[in-house]
Design a protein around this nucleic acid. Structure first.
Lengths: 202, 202
DNA sequence: GCGATTCTGGACTGCATAGTCCAAAGTATG
DNA sequence: CATACTTTGGACTATGCAGTCCAGAATCGC
């Protein structure tokens, strides 16, 4: 049994619930996702949801964020972990765009959308989302630092704010893309942010 | 009487509902805002809501977007309308940050948050939000064009994509700010985007 | 195999909410 | 002042939803 006292079968069911619920929440929003809908999507009954997520919907949504956050970050690997050349940044950019392109039909929307919904309602969820962004931003910052250490960027390039602006470009591009129903703003925003980074090239 | 057959009194009531509802929706989200809550906030009864917004909640939310969109754009004036020098861009940047700083407590969240909630649920609302972004982006694009016409930017500066990247920086900065509960990402993202613009200076 | 624990199904409760309806009060216009 | 129209109040219904409960099936530890 796993640490939480879960059978292999139980863990599988839990996983199945999270994955299916993630798809539903990311397309319909937290408010637009009922426990019933999750039930029919996963062929599970009411009691299982509360068995695996005793605190109810809020806990489930948090699990979704954790799951989906990992998915999104994984989609950027291995580039995200070894940003150390201009070519690697370009590859990273492409992997981000490719990931959202592939999943645009089902869940066109990222976790950022949840931030808006969670802002006031669930502080715990907001904190989880903030941590997720911070992790993502940390990878980008490390990349900028590597570039600077390698002498590819000038000293004036501040890894912290550059990482913020890169992540903001991704999230802002996604917001615009979602409103327009077309992903091109994401690519444009990313290109501009990378151009900004390149303006610090030494 | 006004075009829609509204008495002065009626128009005032309608306005009162929209304004109060806007505050509530922007802090609690559309799902977190019940018609009852709007009722108590504005001291109006159920029937008035449906009298002024026969299609119900969806129509009300659309009115809120129109109202709030105007508010946000107005907060950026007069700078937004006459972006034609580096100093004016800086002033614009400050007005954006100042606006969200002033309103961070009440409605920390912008219309962009609604895009996520509206994506699947209400296509009409999504279209309204897209139009709003397009209007905002149009002002920025005009500003870039003015800069180029004045010889302050090189020919390589594409007004269209630069406007997109600037707006994406605002929206992305707001998403991060919302998650973190702190507006600094907005300022940093905007500064980076403006630095990107400045890299095209001639 | 057997007892304890985990897993699953489905019915049930209680509540919050969107939307309807009708009748009364107010307000224009001639 | 009279009539038609707009505005307002509040009760009423429908429904959909989160969360509870209990009993039965499967599975694990020994």
């Amino acid at each position: 049994m796993s640490p939480q006292g879960l059978t292999a079968k139980g863990a599988a069911t839990r996983e199945r619930i999270v994955v299916a619920a993630a798809d539903h929440v990311l397309t319909h929003g937290t408010a637009g996702t009922s426990l019933d809908a999750i039930g029919v999507a996963t062929s599970t009954s009411r009691s299982q949801l509360f068995h695996y997520f005793p605190e109810g919907k809020a806990e489930l949504v948090r699990a979704i964020v954790a799951c989906q956050g990992e998915r999104v970050l994984d989609a950027q690997r291995p580039e995200l972990d070894r940003l150390d050349s201009w070519a690697s940044w370009k590859r990273w950019r492409d992997s981000v765009v490719a990931h959202y392109t592939a999943n645009s039909g089902e869940h066109g929307c990222p976790i950022g959308s949840l931030a808006g919904q969670a802002a006031a309602s669930d502080p715990q969820l907001r904190a989880d989302i903030a941590a997720y962004f911070e992790s993502w931003r940390g990878h980008l910052r490390a990349g900028v630092q590597r570039m600077r250490a390698a002498g590819l960027l000038r000293r004036g390039a501040d890894p912290d704010t550059l990482a913020t602006s890169l992540l903001a470009a991704v999230q802002g591009g996604l917001v615009l893309a979602q409103a327009r129903g077309d992903l091109t703003p994401l690519g444009e925003a990313l290109d501009a942010a990378l151009a900004g980074l390149r303006s610090y090239a030494s």
